[in-house]
Nucleic acid binder design. Structure first.
Length: 646
RNA sequence: GCCGAUGUAGCUCAGGGGUAGAGCACUUCCUUGGUAAGGAAGGGGUCAUGAGUUCAAUUCUCAUCAUCGGCUCCA
């Protein structure tokens, strides 16, 4: 007998070799039906795997990530089984569970393609196979056996993976006629997979290496219940409605033109107004916090970027150099503001008493992003950073860094980004040639970030190899409507540019010293911030940003959805009166039968301002017909609170 | 840049070898104080661009441009 300890501390005895599934059954059959994986002694395992000794046990129901992971991983295998049945000779790469669902990377073979029209076929086959309730069977094999099995199939992707595994650690999972190399864990059988949707196709490089073959990645998602699938699909559709590209068009905030060029956003009047409000707000906050504003040109001599190291690193992938009538004179469209700011620093002498110097600029930069990477306002080729550089003494570094964390948190709170995540991006220790600067400087910089984040009690993840080439950074990420993560705020510690630009200050010892530089952006870029702001608010911007935004939601359920989609972002001058019963002048001009009364709720930002009834003109002199959105816009009396106190 | 898809009226989209349709929006008129009002009439598209096949192409082929979903990249 063995002793099993449950999360609540209770202990039960079972026969040696009992499976987690049987244990669940012993508690209740209903529990067993809802459990998809188990954590045994801290290791997530198949439910069907025997437990051989005393152990702690947690059973995972659907709401646990471990359960979803096993469920979707098994679903990926199911999809592979369907693919193998439908397209004999198909080769398989990897097929993991992901945050929402799963995918499988496959190679359909030379000259063959999978297209969108195949997706329903795959889905149907998966349903057919799932209904067979095949057992999913785990087996341990030697490296040699594994190589023989997949070698015989000619599956070079699997054999490549196996060749890198250690003998004795290789496991296979089989269901029906399909066997896959896999670590698990999996469901005991395919029967719980009831609701299936094959979502989309994409290309993906084998092992993420753009020099290697591109495989076809097939995405799917599954659920135990059909209703859950329907809810998920609805959620996706709702999210798509919040897409900033869609709302930006509806609200006439920004546009793109092929004639101007891809990735070069055009700010329409209302969008430019919104952007300017953000800049004004940020400028005010920065001045309160001791920043000075500077301004620099959109181009710089190529030597500037050679000094900074950017030219060597990115020169080949940038917009081409600008030449002049002067032989040998070359400029670059500025891809970042830092080198310019360094030269501003160098323009005047500095005393230790003057530091820290906080230098800020809303600087527009140009980067030649790969065409396929462009995405609405979140990834563009021309964007305006709310950039700043702190030049400080080494002893001030940590406090400066912490003060910027405060600023980021303040702005995100005001902007309503409650769900941002923080990531510390460090140098890849295996790949040091990607970075400039001495080990000593890197160690100091990384230590400063980790400590500052720790002292601010920031919850962070650490990403190795994600650092900028000149220094480590702390990034603040926010998700967009469809769950993609975007970096907004970033704080970077840099010992290298001060060295390269020979920045100095006079210390109290009357000797020259080198300052430390902190690069930082809070919004990240105006473009990306506006994009994420739109998606977070569905275009209903916070009051402090849009004191003029007026939304009237007539109190009628049927009308509500419509009204929500037509709210407008308006300037005061644009606010057209309605024919308010308070407005006798206009009222007199209109015949009684041209008026209609509608109950309404006036909403400004998130705040209900007033409700009542309003008479609207349906048609008549100068009117453009019935029920234009503007007809529902009432005049707001007086100023609306211009700022939220946080 | 790579893989796949898409590109038809302001918007959402249908169609299909013989030079185009719907809903919403827009214009005009009529009707109507009941919750995105109803009715009638009307304006608007060289069907992304270029070339090829054909008696004939918006519809087929190819190329280009742009967009979308991913991959790679992201100072």
């Amino acid at each position: 007998m063995i002793r099993i300890t449950f999360p609540d501390g209770s202990v039960r005895e079972y026969e040696k070799g009992v499976s987690s599934y049987d244990i669940a059954m012993s508690i209740s059959p209903r529990l067993a039906a809802e459990v998809y994986a188990a954590t045994v002694n801290g290791e997530v395992r198949d439910l069907s795997r025997p437990v051989e000794s005393d152990a702690t046990l947690r059973l995972h129901k659907w709401d646990d990530p471990e359960a979803k992971h096993a469920f979707w991983h098994s679903s990926a295998h199911l999809m592979a089984e369907a693919l193998e049945a439908l397209y004999p000779g198909m080769k398989f790469g990897i097929g993991p569970a992901i945050e929402n669902g799963f995918y499988y990377d496959v190679d359909p073979g030379e000259g063959k393609v999978i297209t969108d029209s195949d997706l329903p076929l795959i889905e149907a086959k998966m349903k057919e196979l799932a209904a067979q309730n095949s057992k999913i069977i785990r087996s341990e094999v030697s490296k040699k056996e594994a190589m023989e099995i997949f070698g015989a199939k000619g599956d070079e992707y699997k054999t490549e993976l196996i060749s890198e595994l250690e003998d004795g650690t290789i496991t296979l999972y089989r269901q029906g006629n399909f066997t896959d190399l896999c670590r698990g864990p999996h469901l005991p059988d395919t029967s719980p997979i009831k609701a299936i949707r094959v979502l989309s196709l994409a290309g993906a490089y084998w092992r993420g290496d753009e020099k290697r073959r591109m495989l076809t990645r097939i995405y799917g998602i599954t659920f135990p219940k059909q209703k859950q699938l329907e809810e998920y699909i609805t959620l996706l559709e709702e999210a798509r409605k919040r897409d900033h590209r869609r709302i930006g068009k509806e609200l006439e905030l920004f546009a793109f033109s092929p004639k101007v060029g891809m990735g070069l956003p055009l700010w329409l009047p209302k969008g430019a107004d919104l952007k300017q409000r953000l800049i004004d707000f940020m400028t005010k906050v920065l001045k309160e916090r001791g920043y000075v504003m500077v301004s620099t040109p959109h181009i710089g001599n190529v030597d500037l970027y050679k000094t900074s190291g950017h030219y060597e690193k990115y020169g080949a992938d940038s917009f081409r150099p600008i030449t002049t009538p002067q032989e040998g004179e070359v400029f670059m469209l500025k891809p970042m503001n830092c080198p310019h700011h360094c030269e501003i620093y160098n323009a005047t002498p500095h005393s230790y008493k003057d530091l820290p110097l906080r230098m800020a600029e809303f600087g527009t930069v140009y980067r030649y992003e790969q065409s396929g990477e462009l995405h609405g306002l979140t990834r563009v080729r021309s964007f305006t950073q709310d950039d700043a550089h702190h030049f400080c003494r080494p002893d001030q570094l940590k406090e400066e860094f912490k003060s910027i964390i405060d600023l980021v948190q303040y702005i995100f709170k005001v902007g309503g980004f409650s769900e941002s995540t923080a990531q510390i991006s460090l140098r890849d220790p295996e790949n040091k040639q990607k970075y400039i600067g001495s080990d000593e400087n890197w160690e100091k910089a990384e230590k400063a970030i980790i400590e500052a984040a720790g002292e601010k009690k920031l919850v962070t993840t650490i990403a190795m190899g994600e650092a900028a080439f000149y220094g480590p950074k702390l990034d603040f990420m926010v998700r967009d409507a469809i769950g993609r993560k975007w970096q907004l705020g970033t704080i970077q510690v840099d010992y290298n540019l001060p060295e390269r630009f020979e920045l100095t200050y006079m210390g109290n010892d009357n000797q020259k010293h080198q300052p430390v530089m902190i690069h930082r952006a809070i919004f990240g870029s105006m473009e990306r911030f506006v994009a994420v702001l739109i998606e977070n608010t569905s275009g209903k911007f916070p009051i402090w940003l849009t004191p003029d935004q007026v939304v009237i939601l007539p109190i009628s359920e049927k009308f509500n959805d419509y009204a929500k989609t037509v709210f407008k972002f308006l300037n005061n001058s644009d606010i057209r009166t309605l024919i308010d019963d308070r407005n006798e002048k206009i009222g007199k001009k209109i015949r009684d039968n041209e008026l209609k009364r509608i109950p309404y709720l006036l909403v400004i930002g998130e705040k209900e301002v007033e409700s009542g009834t309003v008479a609207v003109r349906r048609q008549g002199e100068g009117d453009k017909g019935a029920m234009k959105p503007e007809d529902f816009i009432a005049l707001v009396k007086g100023e609306v609170a211009a700022e939220i106190k946080v």
